[in-house]
Simulated scan of single mutants.
Amino acid sequence: MPDPISSPQNPRIKNLLRLQQKSSERRAQGLTIVEGLRELTIARAAGVEVPTVFVCPELLPRAQQLELRQVLEANTEWFEVSKAVFEKVAYREGSDGVLALAKPPLRRLPELNLPANPLLLVLEAVEKPGNLGAVLRTADAAQADAVIVCDPRTDLFNPNAIRSSIGCVFTVPVVATTREELLGWCRQHGIRTYAAALSPAAQPYTSFDYRGPTALLMGTEADGLTPELIAACDHTIIIPMRGYIDSLNVSTATAVLAFEAVRQRDVAATRN
Rank of each mutant, 00 (worst) to 15 (best):
I42G: 02
T76D: 04
A63C: 02
E49F: 05
G47H: 01
L59C: 07
R44I: 05
V50W: 03
Q70K: 15
L59A: 12
P51G: 04
E49T: 05
E67G: 14
Q65D: 05
L66W: 10
V48L: 08
F54S: 01
A45W: 04
A74V: 13
V53P: 01
I42Y: 05
L68Y: 09
L60K: 07
L66T: 12
V50G: 02
E67W: 06
L72C: 08
A45I: 03
V50P: 01
R62K: 14
A63E: 15
P51R: 03
A43E: 08
Q65R: 15
G47V: 04
A46F: 01
V48H: 00
L60N: 10
V55M: 10
V53K: 00
P51S: 02
L60G: 01
I42D: 04
C56W: 04
C56E: 09
E77W: 05
L72H: 02
A45R: 15
N75Y: 09
E77M: 09
L60H: 02
R44M: 04
V50N: 02
N75M: 10
P57W: 08
Q70A: 15
G47I: 03
V48S: 01
C56I: 04
V55C: 07
L72G: 07
E49C: 08
C56L: 06
V55R: 11
A46D: 01
R69W: 09
Q65P: 04
R44E: 00
F54P: 00
V71I: 13
I42M: 12
A63G: 04
V55D: 00
Q70R: 15
A63I: 10
L60M: 12
A43P: 06
L59F: 06
G47D: 02
T52E: 11
G47T: 07
V55A: 05
Q65E: 13
A46M: 06
R44N: 06
E58F: 06
A46I: 05
R44S: 10
Q64S: 14
P57C: 08
V55Q: 08
R44D: 04
L72W: 11
V50T: 05
V55H: 03
P61W: 11
P61L: 10
Q70C: 03
E73P: 01
P57S: 05
L68E: 07
V50M: 05
E73V: 00
T76G: 04
P57N: 05
L60S: 04
R44P: 02
A45S: 14
A63L: 12
E73D: 14
L66E: 15
G47R: 01
V53R: 00
L66H: 11
A43D: 08
Q64L: 15
P57V: 04
N75W: 06
L72I: 07
A63F: 07
E77Y: 02
E58R: 13
A45P: 00
I42C: 02
E58L: 11
R69L: 14
V55S: 03
A43H: 09
C56V: 03
E77A: 14
T52Q: 09
A74L: 13
